[in-house]
Nucleic acid binder design. Structure first.
Lengths: 230, 230
DNA sequence: TTGCATTTATGTTAAATAACATACAAATGT
DNA sequence: ACATTTGTATGTTATTTAACATAAATGCAA
């Protein structure tokens, strides 16, 4: 039934590995599974969180609407990872929206159950503190990157970020996520035109190869160099 | 002796208010006071945190070095607030530097003592989770602001941010912090020249009044409007 | 298939902002 | 009191990037 939820909770990689069997059982009883199609909205800026959302399968983008409706992707989620936990723990409404960029499965854990466990299990609290602290560091880094690097630097950093987040296909070169040029632009703080143009330039420089939405990294060192130089 | 530390720990506004007297005593025994002059560095990017730093008196800027040594201010601290807790809890070295922009007093709480308390007191963990989650929301907001708003929007948002953070003088108009034009620029992601120029423009439009480093807000609504429009 | 919408591609122009140059004022040290 | 540095101010130019325009390619549905 919500076998997907059970898998997450039992997963050795998840933060729930610090829980004992009884605690895990609690979580399983109070969690529900939901299925999303590609392009489905999981939640919207302003919505109220009602539980801890965990991505079991698929890929999700988290983005904010900026000036003139222009969107900025602030995070990309992969399994097994949390979504919207910032708002939940800050006791705020969502400040960003989440949309599935592939068919996805999420598992929602009831807020009350989670909080009860947090009270009794300090290791779980520690895990969450560590997660939030890491992501804050990432966010601060990104602020500097997106504001200070030039277009080529921002784009190459985004490509490296996508590679690090989702990994590579069996050919050890193709980034394992297929975004529209618009999404790549929204991730890299540039217009779609400029994302397309700069990708083409990279391709002509043999740094990457393009085939539709497939992006193959040909010269990793080169990409890293461009990213560092800004 | 470290009376300043004691004040922080007993302060009703600090997150330590959830502790009992015995726990507070523990903290006091394992904390030390340090005094910093204006422009003193408290820690540098890459340093290893060795405790929880709390600002007791003064004002501190947290900034990152970006492309070509250009600095970006990511946070401004005021009493009673924490500094560098992100790196401490993420178990990382500092990703940013902290510098006193006024004579300041900080109180450092030993990591081991803090962690012991976190294990036994879940309310304290909760407080830290909430703080980190709030700051992450702030950071994501800032990313969008700094990348999408135009110069006038970024500068007015920075002025409003400084007002909200440090408050106003008795005249109910002058922002209670005295930054160099360069710092204002580094906060707003622009060059010093453009910060100076745009401040002058705001002054000529009677939105603010300038007197050296004193910035008086004459038209709050106007400033908010400019900030929102981007 | 055909038509229509969307995405991708590329060239041109316009706007925003950084970079640079210079001048002057204020603070600081000797 | 003077020289030296630092901060502030403002004008000019160069560069980056957004905005706009157009068109080809692709995906999708009737």
């Amino acid at each position: 039934m919500n076998i997907e939820c059970h898998n997450i909770i039992d997963n050795q990689m998840s933060i729930f590995s610090v829980l004992n069997d009884d605690e895990k059982e609690q979580l399983k009883k109070h969690s529900t599974c939901t299925y999303y199609k590609k392009n489905d909205i999981i939640y919207k800026e302003g919505d109220k969180p009602n539980g801890l959302i965990c991505l079991s399968k698929g890929k999700v983008k988290i983005f904010k609407e900026g000036v003139g409706g222009r969107e900025q992707i602030v995070r990309m989620a992969k399994p097994v990872g949390f979504i919207g936990y910032r708002a939940l723990f800050a006791d705020q409404n969502y400040l960003a929206s989440a949309e599935a960029i592939e068919d996805s499965v999420i598992c929602t854990i009831e807020k009350e159950t989670l909080y009860k466990l947090l009270t009794s299990n300090s290791d779980l609290s520690f895990s969450i503190i560590r997660s939030l602290a890491s992501e804050l560091g990432f966010s601060n880094n990104r602020t500097v990157t997106l504001t200070q690097k030039h277009i080529r630097g921002r784009l190459s950093e985004s490509l490296l970020f996508l590679k690090d987040t989702y990994g590579l296909e069996e050919d050890a070169a193709t980034i394992k996520v297929y975004l529209s040029r618009e999404d790549i632009a929204n991730l890299s703080n540039m217009t779609t035109s400029n994302a397309i143009r700069t990708l083409s330039t990279f391709a002509s420089e043999k740094i990457i190869a393009l085939d539709g939405r497939k992006i193959k990294i040909l010269d990793l060192k080169g990409l890293e160099r461009i990213s560092e130089l800004g």
